[in-house]
């Protein structure tokens, strides 16, 4: 497995994207009251991809094609690179000593990516979508950073595999629940998914993605789901014990846990209306941010009490 992981990663990510798309389509039909057969749900994703493959690419007047391409590609590249630090089993394709920081740096690329895609078409509603995402970033990023730093603090390391090792007995999700919850919320917001999809909302006619057609749209939508998969996958080593678990081998536990997190995120999307930042940022800054800071403080005290602070 070890030598194959770098090649396995893209395959697994695409499989994750497919899983998200299928589940999402099925839940959408179910929520609408039109039950969805399993076969229909399975084929729908392929059909949606096929329709974008055969569709013409159109663009707008005085559009900046370079920005649009840069944005779409950055989204995909950032998602793949972010997922690179996730241990598939015990070994990550790239087990960096600063894995947590690397992941955080890659996902921030999404800010630029969505902004560029929104800016590119020279369209007011697209641009609105773009800056909605930046506003969203200002709301989710700080709680997000405190959440992942709390996990690193608990393990005393920024390396993903060290964080996994520290959870051999107890998952971090168990004794840092606030950080875990904040992470899940911010992971959703980062992929502008679920209740945080105002940047590509229907009310602004698709927002940042509104003027994309054909392959452009396919790549953008794919990149967005890649980002979601990457964020869900990183939750596993950070909070859910990575490959630790009975009976199954480590890699199987990572897959099962990742799919479970993904299923949760997709399910939540259909439970909640969109969270607009003009209302949500208040909650984010007044409730979530202090909560994650307190969580970090509590974890720091526990680590000190265990004598893990001054190694």
């Amino acid at each position: 497995m070890t030598s194959a992981t770098p090649f396995l990663l893209p395959v697994l990510l695409v499989a994750g994207v497919w899983f998200v798309a299928v589940l999402d389509g099925a839940l959408a039909d179910r929520a609408a009251g039109y039950g969805s057969g399993a076969r229909r749900a399975l084929s729908r994703t392929g059909r949606e991809a096929a329709r974008l493959l055969v569709a013409q690419r159109r663009t707008t007047l005085a559009a900046d094609g370079l920005l649009r391409w840069a944005g779409v590609l950055a989204l995909i590249v950032a998602a793949v690179l972010a997922a690179g630090v996730v241990p598939l089993g015990w070994e990550a394709p790239a087990d960096l000593s600063v894995g947590v920081v690397w992941f955080n740096a890659m996902e921030v690329v999404a800010w630029a990516a969505v902004w560029l895609v929104g800016w590119g078409p020279n369209s007011a509603l697209s641009l609105t979508g773009g800056y909605r995402f930046v506003a969203q970033g200002l709301s989710y990023e700080l709680p997000h950073m405190f959440a992942i730093i709390t996990a690193a603090l608990g393990a005393g390391s920024l390396r993903m595999s060290d964080i996994v090792d520290a959870q051999a007995d107890v998952w971090f999700a168990v004794w840092m629940p606030a950080a875990f919850a904040a992470y899940l919320l911010s992971a959703t917001a980062m992929a502008f998914w679920g209740p945080f999809d105002a940047p590509v909302g229907r009310d602004v006619a698709g927002g940042a993605a509104g003027e994309l057609s054909g392959v452009d749209r396919l790549l953008f939508e794919g990149g967005r789901r890649l980002l979601l998969v990457a964020a869900a996958a990183v939750a596993v080593p950070l909070f859910l014990g990575g490959g630790h678990g009975p009976w199954l081998p480590a890699w199987a536990w990572v897959l099962v846990k990742t799919l479970a997190v993904l299923a949760l995120l997709v399910w939540v999307r259909h439970r909640l209306p969109v969270l607009r930042m003009d209302r949500w940022s208040e909650v984010s800054w007044i409730v979530l941010l202090p909560l994650t800071m307190l969580q970090a403080l509590a974890v720091a005290l526990v680590v000190l009490a265990r004598g893990g602070g001054g190694q």
Binding site: A28, A31, A32, Y34, L272, P273
Partner: peptide, 16 residues
């Protein structure tokens, strides 16, 4: 209103 508020499930339910 529900659809504009980004809650497609109940919106579709209301329509049906």
């Amino acid at each position: 209103v529900l659809s504009v508020a980004g809650w497609p499930g109940p919106a579709a339910r209301a329509r049906s």
